[in-house]
Design a protein around this nucleic acid. Structure first.
Lengths: 210, 210
DNA sequence: AATTTATTTAATCAAATGATTAAAATTGTG
DNA sequence: CACAATTTTAATCATTTGATTAAATAAATT
């Protein structure tokens, strides 16, 4: 019986390592992260992290999956709720994402890097398959509006891309934006808060066509 | 006299190494790139790349600066031309960027990673200082339009962020987008070509407010 | 052709790094 | 408390990796 299976009692130490690993991995990326960095950041010995997680890669996979789920599943609930209108969904999703991004500003770059390294591997690792099915709710709502001539006949993929772009990219560009404008983190976050209302407005302009 | 200073005759070999290094660095990032990868990719011996560039880091710095200049300076000419209107500038810059991104799809992630690692270092390394001065042209044009009540009094930083977001982010998300939609690279690029016209239209909607 | 200079290579080094091991310390249990 | 199980550590290994060196080859120059 491998020690790694004893998850109950050691939750504290194991979680501390995971938290430390999360900080280091998201800050420096997989390749630039040394197992010793995680040891130091966590305050534990180097061998301990291998004792708990067997290898750097296995530890990374765990962190990655948790972060990707943070990214994806949290939104699925909102998007797939038939009770809320498309308008409301838009507001909720964007607001939710901006909150999460303010709390985890370097999550996007981290995720992008690993998705870029091997898209399919990650998609397999989480259950994103259902997404296609679940998207039907929002797809139906879209089609209804198109039928009612409430929105232009633009390819919805553009709109989806735009929502994600306008919401996430500013956080990716944050270092440059902050450096060029001289904004503090607080001022930058305030700017992002503003976008919770601005982005839905912009998207509505796009879909109505004027 | 160091051999690296002899730039004339060895242009061919040196350039081949730089091209190989560019491919490997942009594909895998600095930390994940082994000097041996570059050697193999270039077809030359490991020691040769150190002979020409002294170290992995120096080679990387050269590649990075060239790519950043590709990113920045090319646009400066357009933005700083007093002869073109803001509308026209918008079209030109976006079109220019999308062309460049189709040709160099993994440039954005590469740049973002390194900017994230040390924003000031990179900004120092290129002459971006003038930008503040040069931006005056476009800033003036903006102020004129505001004075003429042609555009809303929105914080222009939001619009700047939006232009960059809508243009660049799709390429960052390309692996996910392609994976989820099943689009080929050609189809994806066609989608990006569409955006050359779409994005300026969207931006105009944003600044006019309806 | 001879000699110098530039280019390229194979072999090797030293440090960094992921991982293991065996022992010590701590904690839980009868 | 004694004893077993779990947790933690120091020491060590084997590879990987960036870099150097000294020698071989090719090119240029006289």
């Amino acid at each position: 019986m491998k020690a790694t299976t004893g998850i109950e009692k050691n939750a504290s130490t194991e979680d501390k390592i995971k938290e430390a690993a999360s900080r280091v991995f998201t800050a420096k990326g997989y390749a630039a992260t040394r197992t010793r960095d995680i040891a130091e950041e966590s305050g534990f010995n180097l061998a301990l992290i291998n004792y708990y997680f067997r290898s750097k890669e296995k530890l990374f996979d765990i962190i990655m999956v948790e972060h990707l789920q943070l990214f994806i599943h949290s939104v699925m609930g909102i998007v797939n709720d038939p009770a809320t209108t498309l308008d409301k969904k838009l507001e909720l999703v964007i607001s939710h994402y901006i909150d999460m991004l303010i709390a985890n500003p370097n999550l996007p770059l981290f995720v992008l890097n690993e998705v870029n390294a091997d898209p399919q591997k990650l998609i397999d690792k989480i259950g994103v398959k259902q997404m296609v099915h679940e998207q039907l709710v929002i797809a139906k709502q879209w089609k209804e509006l198109v039928a009612k001539k409430k929105i232009t006949e633009i390819n919805p993929i553009h709109i989806l891309i735009n929502v994600v772009s306008l919401t996430i990219f500013p956080f990716l560009g944050s270092p440059i934006i902050r450096n060029r404008t001289g904004l503090t983190i607080q001022q930058f976050n305030a700017l992002m808060e503003e976008r919770k209302k601005l982005i839905p407005g912009w998207i509505k302009l796009m879909v109505t066509g004027n």
